[in-house]
């Protein structure tokens, strides 16, 4: 094997080596991200506890984790299905924005109430506040850490 082909092969192998160095660096980042993600398991934003539910669905006492957007109503497409005869199919939507929860009534027939007060349009919702949809009452709780 002469000098030329030796140096050519060194260069070629060096290129392949660096391709793998790059992959290795990338994989290290990926693994680090995955570890970080597993250390904080599913950042929960808040939860609703069902206080009273005469209709039975959702059952009283159930704890429901909340997404950044949680819709409530009788329709199955809602995040939380409220099977109550006084609930509209698309009744209300809860959204988490910045550090606060907001509730918006989606023009439901019987209205949405926060601590007994009807919601007009969008209203902020504090932890411990009680939300009423139809006959179902739910309490907003802080996420457990």
């Amino acid at each position: 094997m002469d000098g030329i082909s030796l140096s050519l092969w060194l260069l070629r192998l060096l290129f392949l080596l660096f391709l793998y160095l790059f992959l290795l660096a990338v994989v290290r980042v990926l693994v680090r991200d995955l570890r970080a993600a597993s250390r904080e398991p599913e950042a929960e934003l808040g939860r609703l506890q069902v206080v009273a539910s005469p209709g039975g669905e959702p059952r009283a006492g159930t704890v429901l984790a909340l997404d950044a957007i949680t819709t409530l109503g009788r329709d199955v497409n809602n995040t939380i299905v409220v099977d109550d005869q006084f609930a509209s199919s698309d009744h209300a939507v809860l959204t988490f924005r910045g550090r606060t929860w907001y509730v918006e009534d989606l023009e439901s027939t019987n209205g949405t109430y926060v601590n007994g007060t009807p919601v007009d349009g969008v209203s902020p919702l504090g932890y411990g506040d009680e939300l009423q949809i139809g006959q179902v009452r739910l309490r907003l709780d802080r996420a457990r850490r």
Binding site: P41, T79, I80
Partner: peptide, 13 residues
């Protein structure tokens, strides 16, 4: 945590 809390959110996974 996680799994048990999600009861009642419909069967949506």
């Amino acid at each position: 945590m996680g799994r048990s809390v999600r009861i009642g959110r419909g069967q949506r996974r």
